[in-house]
Write a protein that binds this DNA or RNA. Structure first.
Lengths: 140, 140
DNA sequence: CTCATTGCAAAGGTTTTGCATGACC
DNA sequence: GGTCATGCAAAACCTTTGCAATGAG
């Protein structure tokens, strides 16, 4: 989602548009690395030297609320964030800790099966895979 | 896994067998509630009044290591633990926070699809669903 | 001009660590 | 008896909160 649309969406939902908010979304939108709050913070340090971690957290909360970001719990110490809000599986390398998207597999059938069998009224899901990434396989 | 087998497995792997370790495994084995460390701790308070939370964490670490327990990150503040180490999906109620197992759906096909498409060497996976449980549906 | 947002510091909560005491083998 | 485990307290993290100063609308 481009910067203009983000601006419009923030305003529409009653939030103010600030350089910090745009910058944080920008980082998330332009990476597939699923950064944590601290990684985002560090990446913005050079250009926004006065920004605080608290602002990163508060902004992510808003971005999540308006559906621009999804939160990942890959089982680490910290959360990671993804500006791609499609429901796609993720895979984490147990060696180098990187997290990649899995776009090649369709999950709708599996989700439909679960929806049919469970008595829960489902609202969402997360699929996490664990393993060793190609890079780490060759290195070891 | 019964108490004798747990005892044997601990010894085999070079760990000592203590009342605390057996009690903690016992709690996990006899529940489907996927308790957190603190819930386990509270549940054992009456019978093991001197046990500390640190012991719960240290024991779970060992149980995980020897394959008796799996860790869940359902996206809460704390981890939850499951003595059923089969790879089955879990579903969490967004209202009452309970976590249930999903045994009715076979995941092998989906896992096989992902294994085929990804360049990762997969070692495991976790499937989390979110929604509203039957109880909370009727109450609201 | 008004009110939301920022940034700082402090608090909150979970999990980990270090170390002396105590328990298993 | 030697060594590992326990339990306590403190530390280490990540994340949230409160509040005065600032900036957006």
């Amino acid at each position: 989602m481009d910067e203009q649309s983000v601006t419009a969406l923030l305003r529409e939902k009653g939030f103010k548009v600030t350089p910090q908010r745009l910058a944080i979304y920008d980082v998330l939108y332009n990476t597939t690395e699923h950064p944590s709050a601290e990684v985002i913070f560090n990446q913005l340090q050079p250009r926004y030297p006065t920004m605080s971690l608290a602002t990163v957290y508060k902004t992510i909360e808003i971005l999540k609320e308006i559906g621009l970001v999804q939160v990942l719990n890959v089982g680490e110490d910290s959360f990671r964030y993804d500006a791609n809000t499609d429901n796609h599986p993720h895979v984490r390398c147990m060696v180098c800790k990187r997290v990649d998207d899995i776009f090649e597999v369709d999950t709708t059938g599996f989700v439909a099966n679960v929806a049919e069998k469970t008595a829960y009224q489902l609202t969402g899901q997360q699929f996490y895979f664990y393993g060793i990434c190609p890079d780490c396989q060759t290195k070891h």
